[in-house]
């Protein structure tokens, strides 16, 4: 199953589609030709790729929309965003139990309180980003276990806003 991502790295911006294959992956720019990338993970964080007949070991660490990379000694910080998820995440669908923001912003309001019982869809934190107020909602029914930000706080992308203890 292929996935599409918007990738920003070293001043380049490109949309790439990735599919798993036998022996690795194939990658193409939207509208372009597939490029076969043979390789595998030698261990978590250590990606072996065969490019132009040469094997390369690349260090990687993926967290939310950020991927840290080390290749040939150089450190890179890539932003890799699933364009479909940006909208879903605005509804707080980042995953069970965790409310997270996909983009940088500033916390403007926190309507919920720790210990409060909430239903899926209740607004927990409001973040101003891209000149709009974005409401982040509880992804599940449960109890607010923690609020991890404060009003006025400036956030990085992929910042965790709150944790919800999911009800059974």
């Amino acid at each position: 199953m292929g996935m599409i991502y918007d990738v920003r790295l070293e001043g380049r911006e490109v949309q790439l589609e990735v599919e798993a294959t036998d022996g690795g992956w194939r990658v193409r720019e939207v509208g372009g030709d597939w490029r076969v990338v043979a390789g595998r993970f030698a261990q978590p964080g250590e990606l072996l790729l065969v490019l132009d007949g040469r094997q390369r070991a690349v260090g990687v660490h993926s967290a939310g929309d950020r991927v840290s990379v080390q290749a040939d000694g150089h450190a890179f910080s890539a932003e890799v965003v699933d364009p479909r998820k940006v909208r879903a995440d605005l509804a707080g669908g980042a995953g069970e139990g965790v409310v997270a923001t996909p983009m940088p912003g500033v916390v403007v309001r926190i309507p919920a309180k720790v210990g409060q019982a909430v239903k899926a869809g209740d607004v927990i934190v409001v973040v101003e980003a891209m000149k709009m107020e974005n409401e982040f909602k509880a992804p599940v029914d449960g109890v607010v276990a923690s609020i991890d930000v404060a009003v006025g706080q400036a956030l990085e992308a992929s910042a965790i806003l709150a944790h919800i203890d999911a009800a059974d």
Binding site: L9, R12, V18, A20, S62
Partner: peptide, 25 residues
């Protein structure tokens, strides 16, 4: 400045790493 081939490798590695992270989730 990193070489072109290095940036190319980093770009591929970043999208593959993200893809695999999402796949496991």
């Amino acid at each position: 400045e990193p070489a072109e081939s290095t940036v190319d490798a980093a770009l591929l590695a970043s999208v593959i790493a993200r893809f695999e992270a999402d796949r496991s989730k």
